[in-house]
Structure formats: structure tokens, C-alpha cells
Amino acid sequence: MCPMEKNKKKAERFDWTLTLLLFLFFLVSCAAIYSAQASGQYGNNFLVMQIAWYIVGAAIISVSILIDGYQYKRLSWFLYGFGLILLIAVYVAPESIAPVRNGAKSWFIIKGIGQIQPSEFVKTFLILALSRVITSHQEKHLDKSLKTDFFLLLKLGITTAVPLGLIMLQPDLGTGLVILSILTGLIFVSGISWKIILPIYSAGASLAALIFYLVLIKPDFLEKYLHVQTYQFKRIYAWLDPYNHATDASYHLMKSLRAIGSGLITGKGFGNREVYIPEAHTDFIFSVIGEEYGFVGGSIVIGLFFLLIYHLIKTALDTNDPFNTYVCAGIISVLTFHVFQNIGMTIQVLPITGIPLPFISYGGSSLMGNMFAMGLVYSIRFHHKTYMFSSENALSQ
């Protein structure tokens, strides 16, 4: 095979659709961060730093694409273990290295680089580990039964519980919810019988509803018998009735609602923001988009995420390797939860949590973690093999 033909085949295997989508997210992120930082008293140029993180993310993708799915499957437990070591390290490290910020000890401070949040990488490491658990289980247990399904569920639960527990020790409820979304998404596609899934999730939903009821109606019961302080529910109260609960969460929410509402249909235009939202370049970046570009601009951004998720679903269906399929399913679960939670909290659909909008919010750790996840998708596409007697080839012939 001549070099030109070989290079052509490589070019055809490269995921140009995903590249276009990431480039569009890059443009949206730069425009939104530029506007967000213009209205705040910041000592850093977050736009320049975000561009630098995108360049680092591109380098991560360039390395990730060189490794195929089989190698990722072999490396999955090593990466999972490395992620646990990072979570333990950030918990036990002195505050000079891992300071407590907003009541959470979640970041390493690295001079000359900034802050790194290990849990952002652990999300993808966990996806790889859970995907390997499922595929290894299915290869070993060819004859499915309720017993084998329950055993698989137990293994998935234990694998998830370790990083989840370490993350909740920080504490970081937002990331903990993301971890649970990964587990939920992979359980649903793993083939575990609904006879097992339905009772467990029904019981979980009932328990959550009971706790929510107690928080709203009988908070004194929780404080008396479970020793839970009522001030810990301030985000829920601020979410349901922000105008009568003077907290930081209610302040952000009221500002966000005012900003997005004032954008109306087409927005006020680039740079014409009037509503000040603290730290708008991070978790509340969608409020900036809603104010400047209105319903149309917000819908376009949501549409981009729909296109990205559709592309990931197509990748999951096209691949011949079950491990790769589960990896894509895990990434879809993370992105879907992030987008739904982040946008939902800016418009009072969901309580406020510290979950960024993927690829758009400022944040090096979040962006690098997401870029590593995209690197896995690039790798799946690049190393995808079509076999002679596959249905795809049969149709083409």
C-alpha cells in the first residue's frame, strides 16, 4: 500500500464530525467567557486560559487516539486505581497543596498551572472500569439468569461505591451525582433484567421522595432523629422559593432568571449584558448566553449538545466491540446529566449544584476530563474495523 493511500485511509477514519462539533463548542465558549469576564473584577484573563486548556485538550485527544479499545480495556483497572490514588491524595494532602474552598477539599494547587480537580478525570476512568466489568462478566456468563444479573449489579455497585465514597468525603455532591448517573446509564444498557432493576430503583425513588418530603414538611424530624442540620437544605429551599430565602444560592438563581428572562427571543447582543452574576464564566455560563442571545441562542447551544449526543449514540451502534459500546454509553450518560443539570439549575428546573456546562464553562480540569472522554470516541472511530461479512458490507455489495 502506497503512503498516499495509507494516509487517505487514516484521513477517512478520522472523526471529522466530532471535530466540527468541538470547534463550534470552542467558539461558543470563547464568546461566552469573554462576555462573562468583562463584567467582573477578575485578575485573570479566563479567555486566554480557556484557549490554552483547549490546546491541552487537543493534545490529550492526539495521544488518546493512538490507543485502541483493546489497550484501553487492558489499562482500565490501572487508570481506575490511579484515579483512586488521586482522590485519596487530595483528601489527605495538606491545605497548602489541597486547600478547602467553599467547604470542599477537591483540588490540587500546582504552581504555574493552576488548580486540578482529580474527580473530573475519575469520571472517565470509572467509565472504562465499569465497561470492562460488564464485558468480562458477559464473556464469562454466556447463559444469563437472575443470579448472574444480580452478581453483575453487585460488581458494578462495588466498583462505583469506592470512588463515590471518596468524592463524598470531600464533600462534592454534584460530582457524586454525576458518578451515580454513570452507574445508572451503564446498568440500563448492560442487559440486567428489569425484574432486578425496577424494584431497586423504585425503592430508591421512594426513599428520595420521602427524604424530600421530610426536608420540606418536617425538617425538625431530620434534625432530631438523624442529626442533620436544617441549614444543609438551604439550596433546596432557595430552589423552590428563592425570593424568600436570602442565601448565596437564591441570589445566583434570581440573577440567572433575570438575565435569561431579559434576553427574550433574540437577546441583547454580544457584550450587551446588564445583569451581573458572580462567577458567571463557570457554572452560570448559560445565563450569559441566554441574556446576550436569547431563546434562539440558547436553543442553538442545546441543539449542539443534541447533535453531539446523537453522534455518540451512532458511534456506539456502529462499533463492533461491546466494550467500546459501553464506553460510549457511559460518556453519553455523563454529558446528558451535565447538560440537563447545569441548564436546569439556571432556569429553576433543578437545584443549584457546582456542575459546569461541558466544553463551554471555564475550567481546566473539566475541559481536560471531557477531552479525554472525546479522545476515547476518536479512538473508537479511528480503530473501527468493518468485517467482510458484516451487514454493512452486505448492503454495500
Rank of each mutant, 00 (worst) to 15 (best):
I60F: 09
R74L: 12
Y42W: 05
Y42L: 10
A31Q: 01
I51P: 04
A38G: 10
G40M: 11
L84I: 15
G43K: 00
L66R: 12
I67S: 13
F82L: 15
S76P: 03
R74D: 09
Y70E: 15
L18I: 06
M49I: 06
L20N: 06
F82I: 10
A38P: 03
G81Y: 00
A58V: 03
I61T: 02
F25Q: 08
V28C: 12
A36L: 03
A38C: 07
Y80Q: 05
I55T: 14
Y70L: 15
L47I: 12
Q71E: 08
A59P: 00
T17R: 08
Y70C: 11
A52R: 07
S64A: 14
N44A: 13
Q41S: 13
E12M: 09
L86C: 14
V48H: 04
T19F: 03
A52Q: 10
A11W: 00
I67G: 11
V56I: 08
W53V: 05
Y54F: 15
C30A: 14
C30H: 02
Q50S: 12
G40T: 08
G81E: 05
G40V: 05
I85L: 15
R13E: 15
A52T: 02
N44H: 09
I60T: 13
Y42T: 08
D68E: 11
D68M: 04
F23V: 14
L86R: 10
S35T: 02
G69C: 11
Y72N: 11
A52P: 00
D15K: 04
G57W: 00
I55S: 15
G81A: 09
A36S: 05
G43I: 02
L18F: 01
F23T: 14
W53C: 07
G57L: 02
G81N: 08
T19P: 06
Y34G: 09
L21R: 04
I67C: 12
W16A: 09
I55E: 15
I67R: 03
I67Y: 00
L20R: 06
A11K: 11
N44M: 10
Y42V: 09
G81C: 12
I65A: 14
F78I: 11
S35C: 07
M49G: 09
F78P: 06
L20P: 06
Y42I: 10
Y80W: 01
G57I: 00
S35K: 03
G83E: 04
I33T: 05
E12P: 03
S29Y: 01
A11P: 00
F25M: 13
L24R: 03
G69F: 00
T19R: 04
L84W: 01
L75K: 06
I67K: 09
W77P: 07
I51D: 08
L75W: 02
L47K: 02
G43E: 05
Q71C: 08
V48R: 06
V56M: 13
A38E: 13
A52G: 08
Y42P: 04
Q41F: 02
F26Q: 04
S64N: 07
I55L: 15
R13Y: 01
A11I: 05
F23P: 07
F26C: 09
G57T: 01
L22C: 08
L79P: 13
S29H: 01
L87A: 13
L20T: 09
